Simulated assay, not measured.
Amino acid sequence: MSEHDINDRTLAFAGVLQALKLVQETAHGRPCDLSAMQASVGSILVIDSDSVADVFGGITPLRTGLTLLKTQLIGGQGRPDAELSRYLVTLLHLERKLSKRSDLLDRLSAGIERAQTQATHFDIVHDNMIASLADLYANTVSTLSPRIMVRGQPERLSDTLVANRVRALLLAAMRATVLWRQCGGTRVGLLFERKKLVETASNMLAVNTGQ
């Protein structure tokens, strides 16, 4: 994927928002869309792909993220989610730090290879897979500062299975952020491309998901 356009950046950014939304829903005990979860977590293992869409298993599995993109960047039918915005700002900052840490990038690469092997035996959202990806996040991205402080129900976040799912989804959010950067995404670009990103997301939703 050497050349990228607004479509690629839209899909990658939708992937970031979708993973962060799943983090939020998991932490607060809200229902999570299984197909969105599978697409987001599964994207961590897709390193070599012919297209951005293929990283997430197509455009339809990103409908949650594409819808969020419209709300977060313009407002649309709802107001931007402040909590989600805080997660996003921290994530973008951490991605820049991660990009300069070859040791952590090597650790991530090795961990993803192990997870790819593990995925031949378990479904991508199986507890064993989620635990492995959560551990990988804890030993890489989570060692950087500032850490993403996830808000939610304390009793849920103290549960190992829930905490693992949150960390695995944060890793998915980071993977999508790296992809977005590779597609030419920048924080300044978000300001100048905002309208075009929203238009592109709307067109993708209309064509691929009927929304």
Rank of each mutant, 00 (worst) to 15 (best):
L161Y: 15
S132W: 00
T120G: 15
T186N: 14
H121N: 11
Q118F: 01
Q182F: 03
H121W: 09
R175V: 11
L170C: 09
D127K: 07
R156E: 01
T143C: 12
V125T: 15
D159R: 02
A176N: 07
L161I: 08
V141H: 10
L144P: 00
T160F: 01
F192W: 03
I130H: 10
L136I: 05
A138G: 12
C183N: 10
T186G: 15
D159S: 15
Y137Q: 11
T186D: 14
T186Y: 03
S132R: 04
A168E: 08
P154V: 02
N164Y: 15
A176M: 13
C183H: 08
Q182G: 13
V162I: 13
V150E: 10
R167N: 07
V141C: 12
S145Y: 14
L169I: 09
V178S: 15
A131C: 04
V150C: 04
V162M: 04
H126F: 05
L191E: 06
R165P: 00
A172D: 10
S142M: 05
L133Y: 02
W180S: 02
L170H: 03
A173C: 06
G185V: 10
L133K: 10
L169V: 03
I124Q: 07
S158A: 08
R187K: 12
V178H: 08
N128D: 14
A168F: 13
G189F: 14
G152E: 00
L191P: 02
M129N: 07
A138S: 13
L170T: 08
T143R: 03
I148Q: 00
W180L: 03
A134Q: 03
A163I: 01
I124F: 10
L169W: 01
G189V: 12
L144G: 00
T117D: 06
A172V: 09
I148C: 00
G152A: 00
R147Y: 02
R147M: 06
A131R: 13
F192C: 14
D159A: 15
V141E: 13
H126P: 03
P146G: 15
S132H: 10
Q118D: 14
R181I: 13
A173L: 06
Q118L: 06
L190Q: 04
Q118R: 08
Q153H: 13
Y137T: 05
I148F: 01
G189L: 09
N164V: 09
Y137D: 05
M149L: 11
G184Q: 13
S145A: 10
L171V: 06
V162F: 02
G184R: 15
N128I: 14
P154L: 02
Y137G: 01
D123F: 14
L179N: 05
M174T: 04
R151C: 06
D127W: 10
H126W: 02
P146T: 08
V125W: 02
G184V: 09
T117K: 15
M129S: 04
V150A: 11
D127C: 05
L144H: 03
H126M: 02
R187G: 09
I148D: 00
T177N: 03
G184Y: 14
F122C: 08
P154D: 08
